[in-house]
Each structure stands twice: as structure tokens, then as C-alpha cells.
Amino acid sequence: MSIRHGLLALLADGPRYGSRLRTEFEARTAGTWPLNIGQVYTTLGRLERDGLVVRDGVDEAGHVLYALTGAGRAELRAWYARPVERAAPPRDELAVKLVTALGAEGVDVREVVDAQRRHVTQTLHDLMRRRAQALARAPEHPEETARLLLLEQSLFQAEAEVRWLDHCEARLLRLTREPGDPAGNPEG
């Protein structure tokens, strides 16, 4: 979620001031996307400049309230209707590490793969434990649903990374076989 559209989504529920938007954004994203207050006010300034929000008075504590405009509501609807484009190819430190390890002197890329797999496997165990805890609380606490969805996204991404590491290991084994080795002995 972009900060811009996240703030628009929160403002769809009614006027808010900056620090309340920050608190609600972090609560909705289950703390996985912390914001600093400067980001919030910079984004609100741009949204106001673009005609998507307006200042809507001041609350009893003196906070400036922001509200969606008609254009802001239309932009929010359009955002919900658009699929999210994934950057291709993504900038991924692990991928860069593996491809640079391939030609690096004194580096066994299979050890790099194994170290990452051990790390991700530990992360998977932790995510599964946290998911079980969230599932146990979810029926009584509907606000746990956002946390659960984000945990499951992380869990699925970790599972995909393990599958990719398995694929990398298999590819490396095939590439290190000596030509003419019918047994496919990777020791060659």
C-alpha cells in the first residue's frame, strides 16, 4: 500500500488530523509499516496540492483536520480497482548475493544457499507460531484479521523463498556435474 492511498483510505472514514492518521495507518498495517510524522504531513501536503484532500477545520485540541474531496474518493476507488504492479525484476539482495557468489573466488555458493535456507526455515517456524497465536485470538478479536493476513503474506513469501533456494541448489548441482558423468554425481 502506498502511503498516499493508505491515507486516502483512512480519510474515507471521516476527517482526521496527521498524528491520528499515522496511528491508524500503523494499526491497520499491524505495525509492519511504521511511518514518521513527517511522511504523513508531507503526503497530506501533496494530496492537498493535488486536490484529493482539503483542510476541514480544527478539532477541539487545535489539530488541523483533513477530509477527502470528490476527486480523492474517485482516486481511492480507482486505486482499489487497479491491480498492484510488481516491479520487474525486483531488487533483491539475496538474488544479487547468489549471482555474485557464482564467480567469486573462495565462495561456495551452495553454502550461501544453505545459510539462507537455515535462516528462512527458522523464520518460517516463528511465523507459523505467531500465526497460530493470531488464529487463536482472531474469533474474539476481529482486529486480529489484519495482523493475520500480514503474517500469512510473510509466511507465503518465506515458503516461496525456500522453494526458490531448493531450485537454486538443484540448478547448481546440475551445472557442477562433469560432462559424461552418467550417474549425475555432483562431486565432480
Rank of each mutant, 00 (worst) to 15 (best):
T43A: 07
T43R: 06
L44W: 03
L44R: 01
L44N: 03
G45C: 11
R46C: 04
R46D: 09
L47H: 01
E48K: 13
R49A: 07
R49H: 15
D50K: 01
G51C: 06
G51F: 02
G51S: 06
G51T: 01
V53W: 02
V54N: 03
R55Q: 11
R55S: 07
R55L: 06
D56E: 15
V58A: 13
V58L: 08
V58C: 08
D59H: 06
D59W: 06
E60P: 01
E60A: 15
A61Q: 14
G62L: 04
H63V: 02
H63F: 07
V64S: 04
L68A: 01
L68N: 00
L68T: 02
T69N: 07
T69G: 07
T69D: 07
G70P: 08
G70H: 11
G72W: 02
R73L: 10
R73S: 04
A74L: 12
E75C: 06
E75R: 15
E75S: 10
L76K: 01
R77E: 09
R77G: 02
R77M: 10
Y80R: 15
R82P: 00
P83C: 15
P83K: 10
V84D: 12
V84Q: 14
V84E: 12
E85Y: 13
R86Q: 15
A87Y: 09
A88P: 05
P90E: 13
R91K: 13
R91H: 13
E93I: 11
E93A: 14
L94W: 08
